[in-house]
């Protein structure tokens, strides 16, 4: 089948029910997207499909033909994503870092749809697990991105 990832088209020889996560990690060697649970519980595998945060471990590739997938590897090619990463660095968010690819993707999709999320909206959308407990830093970084004046531009 054909799959568009980070703007590049790939021809793949995989069973239709293969999760996007393992196509990314094993077939395409893009290991920035992490496996944490394989059961839609942790969010470590979050990628963007047409701008929406999606958990790639429970996304059969079959349903992705025609869709455009964005992974952490390309996050900085996107202006908003770039600013999310900058805020992550400014607030020194990651600890072990394992959950952070997913956190950054989730935050980017939240900010794309809601440039100025309230705490309540952040609570509602940022449901990825972080065992290191970087939650307060994540919240602060997200607020920082919205306070960024250039923010309206996307």
């Amino acid at each position: 089948m054909e799959l568009t990832i980070n703007g590049v088209q790939h021809q793949l020889e995989v069973e239709p029910d293969t999760p996007l996560l393992w196509v990314l990690r094993d077939d395409l060697g893009m290991t920035g997207t992490k496996y944490g649970c394989g059961l839609a519980q942790c969010g470590a595998c979050t990628v963007l499909v047409d701008g929406q945060a999606v958990r790639s471990c429970v996304t059969p590739v079959e349903n992705l033909s025609g869709a455009s997938v964005t992974t952490i590897e390309a996050i900085e090619q996107d202006d908003l994503g770039k600013r999310v990463v900058a805020a992550w660095v400014k607030y020194q968010v990651p600890q072990c870092g394992y959950c952070q690819s997913g956190q950054v993707m989730a935050a980017t999709s939240l900010l794309r749809q809601h440039p100025h999320p309230t705490d309540q909206e952040i609570d509602a959308v940022m449901v990825n697990l972080c065992r290191c407990g970087t939650y307060n830093a994540i919240r602060a970084a997200i607020h920082d991105v919205c306070s960024d004046p250039t923010h309206g531009s996307t």
């Binding site: 839609a40 929406q52 429970v58 939240l110 809601h114 309540q120 909206e121 509602a124 959308v125």
Partner: peptide, 23 residues
């Protein structure tokens, strides 16, 4: 996200169910 709180079950659906069954 803002509206989910007013709609009982909506937040749970989006946080726990939507990733597989779709929004």
């Amino acid at each position: 996200p803002a509206k989910r709180q007013e709609l009982p079950g909506a937040q749970t659906y989006m946080a726990k169910c939507s990733f597989c069954h779709g929004a």
